[in-house]
Design a protein around this nucleic acid. Sequence first.
DNA 1: TCAATAGTGTCTATTAGACAGTATACC
DNA 2: GGTATACTGTCTAATAGACACTATTGA
Lengths: 301, 301
Amino acid sequence: MMTETMRDRNGLTEQEFLQRYDASIYERPSVTVDMLIFTVFDKEQVNYRKLPEKSLQLLLIKRGEHPYLGQWALPGGFVSMRESIEEAAQRELKSEANIENLYMEQLFTWGDVARDPRTRVISSSYMALVDRTALDVKAGDDAEDARWFEVNYQVFQEKKTILEGGYEFERLIKITLKHEAELLTATVKITTTITGRTRRISREIVGSHGLAFDHAKIMDYAIERLRNKIEYTDIAFHLMPPLFTLSELQQVYEVILGKELLAAAFRRKLAPMVTETNEFTKDAGHRPSKLYRFNPNWENT
Amino acid sequence: MMTETMRDRNGLTEQEFLQRYDASIYERPSVTVDMLIFTVFDKEQVNYRKLPEKSLQLLLIKRGEHPYLGQWALPGGFVSMRESIEEAAQRELKSEANIENLYMEQLFTWGDVARDPRTRVISSSYMALVDRTALDVKAGDDAEDARWFEVNYQVFQEKKTILEGGYEFERLIKITLKHEAELLTATVKITTTITGRTRRISREIVGSHGLAFDHAKIMDYAIERLRNKIEYTDIAFHLMPPLFTLSELQQVYEVILGKELLAAAFRRKLAPMVTETNEFTKDAGHRPSKLYRFNPNWENT
DNA sequence: TCAATAGTGTCTATTAGACAGTATACC
DNA sequence: GGTATACTGTCTAATAGACACTATTGA
């Protein structure tokens, strides 16, 4: 099909049409990316015997400008005309966490009319998972006021209402972000309405302290996705250092899923994804643990 | 935190800042929505005994303007400044298929720099599932040259290359769209690269006949998502009429998954999602089949 | 009667959950 | 020796796959 030589109703070829095309006549939104950069830290060790607890951490930036001056926001920025959305996300990741070549995934594009008070802003959110040992220590501690916050995610109310031919399901999620004395909280209401042949999910921020824009909503979405995907993919390994013990791996799963797992079943399920090494942990105050590495070929063996 | 009264480095309050904010100084992309509207049709009945086969159908529109004049594209349009992306998608759905209140889900936002030859266009794709019996028959047959195309999706080559610390996996997908004499084809190459701690998936169109823009890529993504989600959610019911037989339901699963299923296991698995009625099919040329309806409450019983 | 679909029963294989029990370092 | 974690074995429950077998209609 030679569209190059076809003429439209004005008698123009494609080339002629494109030369005359004026994109400036329409008003256009701004497009940004918002990055959800997660990692896992060890908390303080309680005593020489206890394993240190793990915590899920999210990188936030203190806003130095209006709007939401002084509040905390997801790192991100405008997508320029000469880069793809993906490239913009990579660029932000590099500039905020100084990390390249890691796991990154587009989550959702947020397009409510009034989500930014400045102007119409449409934002694609990306989730990135990084291994804390590969992190540039500078990042998260520079002049830009970037900080790692410990994430807590909790469903604290569920309500089901039966409707004619379906039901409405309401969940209240409480998200808490902590960095030293700084404590940010947000409550997000997720409403799932199912009636007849329709299903609609809406997310609404019902309370937010210290968090800018609609970022609590985006965090909620991201954590939900992370919790889901960790169950049926191998993305958790992007949070791990090259060598790790199965107990550490289990701790990472537990902190993300927010529940305890049984060691036997966990090991059985993850066995095909890892390769054992001959190395062990040392100075543990208890039986040493074998170190493993990720086996990228696990799916087809 | 009273951000309303805080002043920034220029001594402005948030309100003053917003009043002076000039969004026009940055160049901005256009934002559009692309709709993947799927339904299922019965094909011709071979003889009075055989059940009619089902086919998965996708709504496409013949382009009446440059670029890609004369080729077929996904329905869609620009997101205006006064509507959310979601509202734009709903509006397109209403205008193309004359359907409101149905299943719709955001898939992915495509943001390559040169995906539209006119100007920088970022596009959010939405998948909608409709029941053909609820369809306005006019839709898909109007002046706009909208047509339902039968979708065929086939993996026709898989190649795995072991790399140091990982592998590269390449799949070639052939998508065929058929409406009477019109036959559109496209080949999409999906490359998954896993090395060390990175995983990257890229999609590339390696051949496309009659399909506009990068829409073959978007279709590939949508069909993959549809295949995935039908296995662990109840979205398939949005493709069904209010009353249906379990065999029809199974046919819908089979045509989407591209493989045959065992009836016993299928019925066991779907039993909780449906409620039986006292009605039966008639004039079937074989044993009549009980009619069922969707049970929206299946998840919590 | 028979072609074609509708629907059920049951055996097997696989996987997840539960939990007891053994192993082993360091202080 | 005692404490805390590391790791394994095994019973059970739940689920998916395979397939045979019975049921029922219209022409």
